[in-house]
Simulated assay, not measured.
Amino acid sequence: MTENTTANVRVALVTGGTGGIGHVVVERLVADGFAVAVHYSGNKDRAEAMVADLVSRGGQAIAIGGDVGDEDEMTAAFDAVESAFGGIDVVVNTAGIMILTPIVELDLDDLDRMHRTNIRGAFVVSKLAARRLRPGGAIINFSTSVTRTQLPTYGPYVASKAAVEGITLILARELRGRDITVNAVAPGPTASPLFFNGKDEAAVARFAKATPLERLGQPEDISETVAFLAGPARWVNGQVIYTNGGLA
């Protein structure tokens, strides 16, 4: 763990920071000069190893745990970031789970579990960020391009991410006068553990061919959009950015 020693360093909290996309987002923000809090839910060892590596390379980072759906735990997480770095400028909410199943076969316990992380978690994190970000800040939530493609078996997941888009677009309007942007990134098929889970090689190949660029996205492609929204994109607000290689 390291603490911020420069008053003008921008500070980011990345939920789900140990995940495939979250990890690369953390790396990109540190490279851009941010002090970063790497949030984890269950993988404390991975988060601490990431932080140790970042600090060894001259970055500023801490690891913080918590269930994104638990307001008390996330309040403590925000407190820890502010204590370490003096404030928070950017929150990137990559934490999420995806369970694929036809709607008619849906286990409602799975629905509740996914919605606790994806919907309740988005409300909790966005609410706390809206209260505590400094002027000039950015809230960046994560949706999915499947909200537009309507693929079978994605119904429960898309329902949760459509809710995230609604939260994002309305919160952007509610924060009028605060100088805080609120946007969502909607990745297309991206080579991450979340995407590969449950897919065979043929399915992966079909997704790779689905975009005009004829490849899967890489986590680095997504982190480029996050870095833009976290930094120079002060006139992009209340938007869903489809980072998907042209997926129709």
Rank of each mutant, 00 (worst) to 15 (best):
T2M: 14
N4Q: 13
V14C: 04
V14W: 06
H23N: 13
E27P: 04
A31R: 14
D32V: 09
D32N: 12
A37L: 11
N43A: 15
R46C: 09
E48A: 10
E48N: 14
E48P: 12
A49V: 07
R57K: 15
G58V: 10
I62T: 00
I62K: 02
F78K: 03
D79A: 07
S83I: 01
F85Y: 10
I88Y: 02
V91W: 00
A95F: 08
G96V: 08
I99Y: 12
L100Y: 04
H115T: 11
T117V: 15
F123H: 09
S126E: 05
L128E: 01
A130Q: 03
L133N: 03
G136W: 02
V146H: 06
Q150A: 15
P156W: 05
A159P: 03
L171D: 03
A172Y: 11
R173M: 13
E174C: 08
A186R: 06
A186W: 05
G188S: 08
T190K: 03
P193C: 11
L194K: 05
F196S: 06
F196W: 04
F196V: 04
R206S: 11
A208S: 13
L216S: 08
G217T: 09
D221T: 05
A227C: 07
P232A: 11
W235M: 14
V236E: 05
V236R: 04
V240A: 12
G245E: 04
